[in-house]
Design a protein around this nucleic acid. Sequence first.
DNA 1: GTCAAGATTTTTGTATACAAGAAATTCCAT
DNA 2: ATGGAATTTCTTGTATACAAAAATCTTGAC
Lengths: 218, 218
Amino acid sequence: MSQRRADIIADALEELVFTGGFNDGDRLDEIRLARQFDVSRTPIREALQRLVASGLAEQIPRRGVFIRQPGPVELMEMFETMAEIEGVCGRLAAQRISETALQDLDAANARCTAAVEAGDTDGYYRENEQFHHVIYHQAGNGFLEQEALRLHRRLKPFRRLQLRLRGRMQQSMAEHEAIVAALRAGEAERAAEALRGHVAIQGEKFHLLMSSLRDAAE
Amino acid sequence: MSQRRADIIADALEELVFTGGFNDGDRLDEIRLARQFDVSRTPIREALQRLVASGLAEQIPRRGVFIRQPGPVELMEMFETMAEIEGVCGRLAAQRISETALQDLDAANARCTAAVEAGDTDGYYRENEQFHHVIYHQAGNGFLEQEALRLHRRLKPFRRLQLRLRGRMQQSMAEHEAIVAALRAGEAERAAEALRGHVAIQGEKFHLLMSSLRDAAE
DNA sequence: GTCAAGATTTTTGTATACAAGAAATTCCAT
DNA sequence: ATGGAATTTCTTGTATACAAAAATCTTGAC
């Protein structure tokens, strides 16, 4: 695969950004990072370019590159966009999904429920992700799938914050069931709406996310 | 702005890719490009990284970076995705669009019609683009807007091929009218469907695109 | 003490040098 | 002549060197 150090470093930096290793506005010092990864500035710079290209950082010419965590507004916009894209995937998938995939969704849901009952948050998280990935794939459009995966990945660190809400996982499971039902029935619009509603952040969810953000900032 | 040569070179290369200056699979020789742009390999390499990041080229480690033009399947997928995203923008815009923006759309359409009558293809193209950009913006979601613009831009060279079809511009104008009507009425689903249909490639449009591609390949 | 202009240091951006892996070529055995 | 191994050449990836712009510090006038 990628034997390039620049890629390895870029992956490491992305992971650091996602796991909160950086704060908004942090400058990514080339020399410090070079020492830290024990390489020259060259691969560091290429890695930073990748971060900038993926929107995780911003480059100001002759000034450096800075971490750019989305603020509340942009975060809401990203979640709304994700909800819409999931809706699109759902509508297309309703017309294209295979019987095997429907069974996969059922299986993922079963494992999800089991994880909820066992209080296994990580397990729930993993299976939930699997569930959504299957839907992206079943939209039958490789390009759309990649876009969905990209945004999904980008929102990963923030989605985690959502799960804290009391009873959220139970409600989420009920929504999963409804989604599968719509997909199985081939009802495109219903599937789209169910997925939009499932992913969208409204009402209580909105306030929860905001307060989580405040907590994380402290 | 960006005084970085790497960015200037990246822009130039992107433009070259879009205007058909490269064929699929072409290797982007660092040394040749360095001579061509009269710089060292360093800024060339950074520019190439940007092309790779935006999906215009592919990098094979230790082998180089190669132009990667989308094939028929991927192109269809990209157009379908664009249609869906436009649909989403339309649905959101129907709920959020301002009166001023509606007038802008009318104005753009009028200029579009004038261009059609004058046989001014470039003018039509420009105003058509404007029309769509207004809708992206009126979706009221900056992130979604950027994504829409990105994909729109990526498809630009291929969209041009579509216009050749006899009477296509007239039909397109009628669709524009219907879209504005739906937006003005605030009918979200109707706006979404109108935009999806307007952008989607189906029936004759599909065959036209395929034959255009074949022609361009020769 | 404050402010500003000049000097100094840092840091980015680019060029060049070097190392290592891939491709091309040569050369030999059959 | 052909196939394949060894060598050479070429290219990418990384390190280092240098130039120019920005940031910081110093110094001096008020």
